[in-house]
Design a protein around this nucleic acid. Structure first.
Lengths: 173, 173
DNA sequence: CGGTCTCTTGACGGAGTTCAAAGCTAGTGG
DNA sequence: CCACTAGCTTTGAACTCCGTCAAGAGACCG
């Protein structure tokens, strides 16, 4: 729908630039037109834990902060030069007021997000590293080529060293 | 709203009775009036993995199967004698048609579910067993008293033996 | 009572982490 | 266009947390 376009603001992000900094409020839901982003937390030991990746056609936000208006514990930055469409909460309301059919679309996004999160939980707990990695590359074959190894490791909850060894095992078969 | 009541069907479940069996389609979203339920999967080695608990005031379903009409990989059974309000998909549509304000309520449920799932992921990956347990008892203090140890262990993705030792550590401080 | 379910405790083994060092790769500036 | 640096990946060795296996102790119920 052309009529939707003016509800979004267009934004370009260079590699390593941030869309959201920890302790700030997440003002936008982002739709990725081009590039790759990630969201991640930093734990008490200073370790990064990647929560989510997003590429072309994906949506990304910190739902908690976006919906409650409270400070986010999450950072979002660009892993490649990226182009985004940003939707603020007021834009979102206006958009849904104008095009009620989108209610359904946004609900589907939520449902699929929840289903995916549950699926990922099941695959994370108690699954050996190799299986987690195999599951990752079969779920996101395109992402594997674009992401550095240590970021996939962070997403899977293993160390880069372990993932390096796992990968070595796999190609030798 | 009194007017909502007749959209739900009332169901009682004795301890160990099932609401949903693996390989069947999940027909209902359940609201727990009384009791405790759990949803769980069984992996290739025959091990149970608890995905979710639900007590008084919580909603429980297998969203994937419920929304798509496809067979579920998940089981749902009662851990105590329980009372439920069941909502089928057609009931849900009728209800939302009658009381459009509930759209918002159901969207909030989804949002909170997704936020909780993300939170849990962050706390699961790469976190030592003790921290996971401490986080669990501070998040669900009421549940801890009602659940057997080995089920909490299954939810956290550790063995009962490990959780037993963790608990011993904690009380000795 | 006896039987099943639950929790505890011990000994052992293995997958994964940590620490450290060295090899690669890509980007930058002279 | 090359040299250099910083970030990424690989590899090795020691250690640690957790899982596995096995046995025993309570607790609950018919």
């Amino acid at each position: 729908m052309e009529s939707c376009k003016h509800f979004f603001s267009h934004k370009k992000l260079k590699r390593h630039q941030y869309l959201l900094h920890q302790d700030n409020v997440c003002k936008y839901t982002a739709f990725v037109v081009r590039g790759v982003l990630r969201s991640y937390t930093i734990d008490d030991e200073g370790e990064e834990h990647i929560v989510q990746f997003a590429t072309e056609g994906w949506w990304l936000t910190n739902l908690y902060s976006y919906k409650t208006g409270r400070p986010s514990q999450i950072n979002i930055d660009a892993l490649e030069d990226s182009e985004l469409l940003l939707l603020s909460r007021s834009d979102e309301e206006a958009l849904l007021g104008n095009v009620p059919k989108l209610e359904r679309y946004f609900r589907l996004l939520l449902e699929n997000g929840l289903i995916a999160a549950e699926q990922r939980l099941i695959y994370s707990l108690g699954t050996p590293a190799e299986e987690k990695y195999l599951n990752f590359i079969s779920t996101y074959p395109d992402l594997v080529k674009r992401l550095p190894l240590h970021m996939i490791a962070s997403y899977l909850g293993v160390t880069p060293e372990t993932l390096s060894r796992v990968r070595k095992q796999i190609v030798g078969r």
